[in-house]
């Protein structure tokens, strides 16, 4: 079952293996192709039901024309292919949203990594009363979906007892909200990771006179660097993808994040700016997709590690 079987006919392999895989890939990628094609079409083409929607005719014609005449003309290409991309980057707040998303994602990731490291270390290494309860509590929090809490949480964040300041409509509302799901996630991933590091290394350092905290910072953390890196990357992408809290906590267009900004500001009542929507959706997806594809092995390893641990 797991290996290619010797002696299978080509026809059998085609039906049992190549064709299904081809359809899976097609199924997965078609919407992205669709975003791309729509983003480089002219508005006129987008709303013309008689031209073939699979091909961006105007853009292809412009490229073909330049290729034939061997006369490169960048502004003509921009006019025919990249019109919506230019509008998105120049005439909308997309760059602002990108900045907001980055700020929120980086700060909440750093906070969550710190809290995740400390609690994961405690859960993986230290024996103290209530440790099991803490572990269960963190796991439960990891499984609680934001949709269960968003209504009261917006109240709580809007009226924090010790701040006397309304955090809503500022990036800080998201920076304090995102750790609620990022900390349990980091703790979960890192606890499994810390357990794979031999205890003896720390114990040796402590026999040589290091304190426990020194041993943790100097011995364990450097060894856990791959785990920290992947936990950080996943936390970053999780916060960059978050939608519900960002939708509810932020009201003003310039303060929004990419997912909320694209969905709420590029659709005005009944008017959908499809070209801009699609280029925004692609541009918002690319960084996250790149990061993920580099770290997916770690994610799977972390998950199976945590299940086994």
């Amino acid at each position: 079952m797991t290996q290619l079987q010797v002696g299978e006919s080509f026809a059998k392999r085609l039906v049992a293996y190549h064709l299904p895989l081809f359809f899976f890939v097609l199924f997965a990628l078609f919407p992205f192709y669709w975003m791309f094609v729509t983003s480089i079409k002219s508005t006129h083409e987008t709303y013309n039901r008689d031209v073939n929607p699979y091909v961006p005719v105007t853009c292809v014609a412009a490229i073909a024309e330049q290729a034939r005449s061997l006369n490169f003309n960048g502004s003509a290409l921009a006019e025919n292919c990249l019109y919506h991309w230019r509008t998105l980057l120049r005439d909308t707040l997309f760059i602002r949203w990108l900045e907001n998303t980055l700020l929120v994602a980086i700060v909440s990731t750093l906070i969550s990594l710190f809290a995740g490291i400390t609690s994961a270390y405690a859960l993986a290494r230290l024996r103290f009363r209530g440790a099991d309860t803490f572990g269960v509590l963190i796991f439960v929090t990891y499984l609680v979906p934001p949709t269960l809490l968003f209504i009261p949480l917006s109240d709580v964040i809007g009226d924090l007892p010790f701040l006397h300041k309304n955090l809503l409509n500022s990036p800080w509302a998201l920076i304090v909200a995102y750790p609620t799901f990022l900390i349990p996630f980091c703790t979960w991933l890192l606890t499994g990771y810390f357990r794979t590091i031999p205890k003896e290394l720390e114990e040796a350092a402590m026999i040589d006179g290091a304190t426990r905290i020194q041993a943790m910072v100097r011995i364990i953390l450097p060894l856990a660097l791959p785990g920290l890196l992947s936990a950080g990357m996943f936390a970053f992408t999780l916060s960059a993808n978050e939608f519900l809290y960002a939708l509810i906590f932020i009201y003003d267009a310039p303060n929004k994040t990419v997912p909320v900004g694209v969905v709420s500001e590029l659709i005005k009542g009944d008017v959908f700016y499809w070209g801009e929507l699609m280029s925004g959706a692609l541009l918002g997806s690319v960084p996250v997709a790149l990061i993920y594809s580099f770290f997916v092995e770690h994610y799977v390893a972390g998950m199976t590690g945590a299940i086994k641990g």
Partner: peptide, 26 residues
Amino acid sequence: AAVLLPWIVPTVLSTIAFLWIFDPDF
């Protein structure tokens, strides 16, 4: 990596593509 993409990208952004794929007129 290719088949993982749907799960990786921000859900609302890929759903926007489906909104257009399911458009009543186009």
